[in-house]
Design a protein around this nucleic acid. Structure first.
Lengths: 182, 182
DNA sequence: GTCTATAAAGGGATAGAC
DNA sequence: GTCTATCCCTTTATAGAC
């Protein structure tokens, strides 16, 4: 997908990466522009020199969050799909050690403007492409199979984060891991 | 789950069913107490005679929305699990003809208080219980299998609603249907 | 039990100094 | 390009009349 881990040390990049972290972990509506700017070491007034609206930042933050989550996951995986799945469907992901925007923001996206929704759609398609690419067996994966894996991964983490029963969450994530690897 | 279709004609019930519809379709933060009360034919001030906070209403609305979605689905299913799945993973559901709170509010729940999260958790467990109960083959379903079906159903609709590519949404829902029936 | 009126707080966006 | 100050609107929650 063309991302790099290094962050350009510009204010704009600081704002985007701050937003990526705060929006995914706390939700778009629960984070004020002021929170993002404080986290980036700036103040409110400077925001509109970089973005025309909070929504425009949202779209950029989704892409940034996806890159960060992908980097975090792949770094620890040895580039094996089974490892990627293990890390993705882990309690650490549920607890927010890293944050896939596809799973953390899923039901927040529907209300937003088309720029945000298109961005989410594009990131989802990239996620599914990655499942194809990392598939070990060297043989092409059925599109339906890749989609099922994606839904079990993204949906599994999204639901696991919603519930407040840790023991049940473990069983749920375990069932999803089994399903994705089948 | 003990629900009935008839609505008691009290203000309280009107408020709850209004909230069930508005919260699921538009999201909790995007609906003001004023909107709920208007929809129920009342004004703001009357709200606090029924509930101590907006969050308390949220928990009740989730239960109400689950009952409504279950009624809608089962009425059209002939009580067959395959039909239930077909209806649940349909474009009509994605478009909001009915609204399962588990799928429409998934990532909104994590931020809320324990009362809301416990309610969501309870409704999810009831959903999984229903998969066991409606399983045709008369033989007990593996818990992991039931959870995988639930995640494909709930996650599938949640993701399908987020994306703004109708054609891709059809393929995604189709892949989920295939996966749940496997 | 429902109404109008209002308090109190928060947040998106803009203006203008530096 | 960043700052402080402010406008303006929305929202939750409360007070008090009927």
């Amino acid at each position: 997908m063309g991302w790099t881990i290094e962050q350009k040390n510009t204010s704009r990049e600081k704002i985007i990466s701050s937003a990526a972290e705060l929006f995914t972990k706390q939700g778009f509506d629960n984070v004020a522009i002021n929170d993002v700017m404080k986290h980036a070491g700036l103040t409110r007034g400077a925001f509109y020199n970089h973005f025309t609206s909070k929504s425009e930042l949202y779209a950029e933050a989704i892409v940034s969050a996806a890159h960060l989550a992908k980097a975090h996951t792949i770094e620890r995986s040895g580039f094996k799909l089974a490892d990627i799945i293990e890390i993705y469907l882990s309690d650490k992901h549920r607890q927010g050690e890293f944050s896939c925007p596809l799973a953390f923001l899923t039901t927040d996206i529907h209300q937003r403007d088309n720029n945000v929704r298109s961005t989410y759609t594009r990131v989802l398609k990239g996620f599914i492409d990655n499942i194809h690419e990392f598939n070990e067996h060297g043989m092409a994966l059925n599109e339906n199979e890749a989609i099922k894996k994606a839904v079990l991964m993204i949906g599994g983490i999204a639901i696991a984060r919603a519930i407040n029963d840790d023991e049940f969450s473990e069983r749920l994530l375990n069932a999803c891991r089994e399903g994705v690897n089948a």
